[in-house]
Simulated assay, not measured.
Amino acid sequence: MQIHLVKDYNAMSACAFDIIANTLRQKSSPVISLTTGATPAGLFKLLVKAINAGDIDISNTVFLNIDEYVGNQRDVYTVHTFMFERLYNQLTQKPKYFDMFNAGTLNKDYEILRYKHILDTYPRDIQLMGLGTNGHIGACEPGTPFDASAFCAEHKASTIESTMKLYNITREQAPTHMFTLGFREIMAADRPLLIVSGTSKADAVRRLLEEPINESCPASFLRNHPNFTLILDEEAASQLRKETLEWATR
């Protein structure tokens, strides 16, 4: 496990960008699986700027995503909307290929099988993730078995509330289910990369690093991956013990 403790959100975004940019530059056919929401928004801005400036060539890159809400594909909250508004529509060059779960599919079982085939076709160099306030990653909520494969998850109340706040939508408008990679797929990536910022995530970070690996904090399972990389800012690390901080920064 590798931990980067940085000052603030901007530093977290820059650190994550450096890791992803290095992979994009060094690999001949890089595969990057992304996440969406407030946490990676700054990272996306840095990626767009570097790609459009010609500092990074993505002509042989594959972009994937860890999850997708179930609903109208073009609704404001979907991963599809986020990816096109924050990345694909802003790029002056296009990746070799991109894919994600289909939010509006009428056959959920088929869609899961289809996307698992895509993952098998394009092994991931990096799986980017954010951390939920309850410790979830992707849509693997507390209680998700550690042997779970890709599935359609039902959101916990805290996740629904976060979605409502982020996208300024009502409880009736908020999605209640989400396609997600399971732990099997997450751990199959060469490098799981978790980025965390803010005091609202501090308790989840404490549970991730200081409590035993347990399904009550899904992100804790990442500690079993030899290349797990965690980037957190000072606010997110604010509940960690002094000994943990010393260990994390040595």
Rank of each mutant, 00 (worst) to 15 (best):
Ala148Ser: 08
Asn89Cys: 11
Phe101Asp: 08
Arg223Phe: 10
His177Gly: 01
Ala248Pro: 06
Asn107Tyr: 11
Glu246Gly: 09
Gly198Ala: 13
Gln73Pro: 04
Phe183Gly: 05
Asp109Gly: 11
Ala237Leu: 07
Ala219Phe: 00
Leu64Asn: 05
Thr105His: 13
Phe101Ser: 08
Ile20Ala: 03
Asp203Leu: 09
Val79Ser: 09
Leu113Met: 04
Phe151Ser: 09
Gln127Asn: 01
Ala16Thr: 09
Gln173His: 08
His80Met: 04
Lys108Gln: 12
Asp57Trp: 03
Gly42Glu: 06
Glu243Pro: 06
Thr180Asp: 07
Ser216Val: 15
Thr244Asn: 06
Thr199Arg: 07
Thr121Trp: 02
Gly135Ala: 13
Pro192Gln: 13
Thr81Ser: 15
Leu43Met: 13
Thr105Asp: 13
Leu232Thr: 03
Leu113Ser: 14
Pro145Trp: 11
Leu222Phe: 10
Leu232Val: 11
Glu85Gly: 00
Asp190Ile: 01
Asp190Thr: 08
Glu185Asn: 02
Asn227His: 15
Gly104Cys: 10
Ala236His: 01
His4Arg: 05
Arg223Leu: 06
Phe84Cys: 07
Lys96Arg: 09
Asp8Pro: 03
Glu141Asn: 04
Ala219Pro: 00
Asn227Gly: 12
Arg25Ala: 14
Ala157Arg: 15
Asp75Thr: 06
Asp190Glu: 15
Ala148Tyr: 08
